[in-house]
Write a protein that binds this DNA or RNA. Structure first.
Lengths: 134, 134
DNA sequence: TGACAATTTAGTAATTATTATTATTATAAA
DNA sequence: TTTATAATAATAATAATTACTAAATTGTCA
């Protein structure tokens, strides 16, 4: 799924900065960080590149309930824990033989009360849709 | 968590309509449906009541990747499957002893390739925040 | 029942996250 | 270098949601 990217200082710095973070920033939070290195950076550049990078499988776009989407430099499928008060997101590890609530190895201090499980796929209708010729 | 609600024709019809659906409509889709019964209905009324109803635990607000949020008349924790092409959402049932991918009892025709697991809670910082006095 | 208070609504304006546009600048290819 | 391609900054446009407000509805209780 991953493809190579043309380089530009902005794109490289955005990606590198996101990789270095353990947090899951919004586009705007990441913009503020990268802006320290590239002061003339535009917010639209951050949005455009995060979209591109997530389409290419280099980063992950997260829907965590807040108004703003969040981004994760780790593009592999892994569970998250979200604070419903402040929106902060952390990675979490599961032990794959136990049931959900017991399986969390490190709760990261979160007081957990709910889970959201979502599978992603393609529905029957969309599977049968022949792609349009170019 | 559920509290009682004051009634108004609009609120009752919105809730009843959502309960009857097996689908997971956006606020706008639900608006179109309820509008058939209450032609002068306002979209803002639908948004306001869905917000209220979900805060009170009568319905569930879903973040499924699209721009619009979706709503589920079943407020209990249960897994969903989302079509990444058209956005359609379906309920899904898991067998609780198997690992994830194998545990899905009925895929509803979806061709599934990924999973998103999200726990919800309150982070350490927010737990220690004393609530403001009224 | 009727008078008043409280709640809810419709309609619309405002807000806000994200995306599109465009002229300019940077990068790559020849 | 010269020319073509792609990316950027800055800003405008879009679209989902929320806030506002005057009018309508509902609830309370004398």
């Amino acid at each position: 799924m991953k493809q190579n990217l043309k380089k530009s200082r902005q794109r490289e710095t955005i990606l590198k900065t996101l990789y270095q973070l353990k947090s899951h920033p919004t586009a705007e939070e990441l913009y503020d960080l990268v802006k320290e290195r590239i002061p003339r950076l535009s917010l639209a550049t951050v949005y455009r590149n995060l979209e591109l990078l997530s389409e290419m499988g280099h980063v992950q776009k997260l829907d965590t309930g807040g108004r703003q989407k969040r981004f994760d430099g780790n593009a592999t499928d892994h569970p998250h824990v979200v604070c419903v008060v402040c929106g902060k997101v952390a990675d979490i590890e599961l032990q794959n033989d136990l049931n959900f609530f017991d399986a969390i190895l490190d709760k990261r201090g979160y007081d957990i009360f709910a889970q959201k499980i979502q599978f992603q796929g393609i529905c029957l209708k969309c599977q049968n849709m022949t792609p349009a010729k170019i």
